[in-house]
Design a protein around this nucleic acid. Structure first.
Lengths: 138, 138
DNA sequence: CCCCATTTGTCCGTATGTATC
DNA sequence: CGATACATACGGACAAATGGG
């Protein structure tokens, strides 16, 4: 549960891995607040920068959300609304540009689903709030 | 083309925007190496931390990829292979876990597509290499 | 193989701003 | 109001990886 300074993998990646484990194991449940940056530097015996990059990495994975002046919390898993896509659609996933993130009010680390319908129309959907469904042939 | 220190938007966001422009305009084509951190601090007259945060932001967007001791490159856009999903499937997008990123050899800033087929099988696909297609009703 | 220049990773000290409680 | 915590930004320093000669 510690950090190996001599490892090939960067310290901040190791710390991110450790925190991710603590999140996925349920020790840090959704809604829970992570230890403060100062605390983490002490716990793992590493520098500020490594801690901040680790937390930043988890943010970019959509696992946590940071509020200035308050701390970093494990993200709640939102309910997904179902969106039906018509046959003949093409679907890709990617990270949004800064502009798109702002317009869709997306948190850091949330991808978008890009749906190109057969009629040519393109739709961009927030990846954490949507589940696409293809119509079943009943 | 320059950075406004007194602006409300952080310097590193401004730099990220400028670099993103240079990438999207084609000045920095896929495969090209970005100027080094030291170079960027000179070009924009800012500190290294701001530069590093700007590049980090672009990484989290999947636009660039950094290798220690070498540099940061504009990501190549891979050809997407088409994957057909059967009717009645459910599709979501999210960022991969550390394990998944390792197994799928995914760069930072690349989401995965999760396809749950009607028979219950779940497939995890790299978001930058795949385009899902829903069978057209011909 | 070693040497070396380049580049990114990491740490530290410091400072100021801003949001929350 | 103050205490806490994160955000931004600068400076310096050394470690570690890469790649070329």
């Amino acid at each position: 549960m510690t950090v190996d300074q001599r490892s090939h993998t960067p310290v901040y990646v190791q710390v991110a891995d450790l925190l991710r484990q603590r999140i996925e194991s349920g020790e840090l449940a959704p809604g829970a607040t992570l230890p403060s940056e100062a605390r983490l530097t002490q716990e793992y015996g590493i520098g500020r920068e490594a801690v901040r990059m680790a937390v930043s990495l988890l943010r970019s994975e959509g696992l946590v959300s940071t509020v200035r002046g308050h701390g970093t919390r494990v993200r709640e898993i939102p309910n997904r609304r179902q969106v039906e896509v018509p046959p003949g659609s093409r679907i890709t996933a990617r990270m949004p540009s800064g502009r798109e993130r702002h317009e869709l009010q997306l948190d850091e680390g949330i991808p978008v689903l890009v749906v190109r319908r057969p009629d040519g129309q393109t739709e961009i959907l927030p990846g954490d709030q949507v589940e696409l469904t293809t119509p079943a042939d009943d």
